[in-house]
Amino acid sequence: MLIWTITIVAVCICIALILNLWRLIQGPSVSDRILALDTMYINTIALILLYGMYMGSALYFEAALLIAMLGFVSTAALSKYLLRGDIIE
């Protein structure tokens, strides 16, 4: 039962990632693309944790933690860079 649930949830997350990718390509503004990337990394964390559960290993947790940290820092850095383009800081 657990393996089946993990498969179903993984399919859900893959559909979610495809929807994010569509928004990333579609645009229309840069903010939308940053938001799509931000959502993508959250979905990727879930996918990695699911794979760790599927393999029964705790090693994948570190990868998930790293993605969480890098994802937030990159979102903040991209937004800050775009904000600095304006006169108002």
């Binding site: 979610a16 929807l19 994010n20 959250i42």
Partner: peptide, 8 residues
């Protein structure tokens, strides 16, 4: 997660 991305 699916609903969040669907809304996006």
């Amino acid at each position: 997660l699916l609903v969040g991305s669907y809304g996006l």
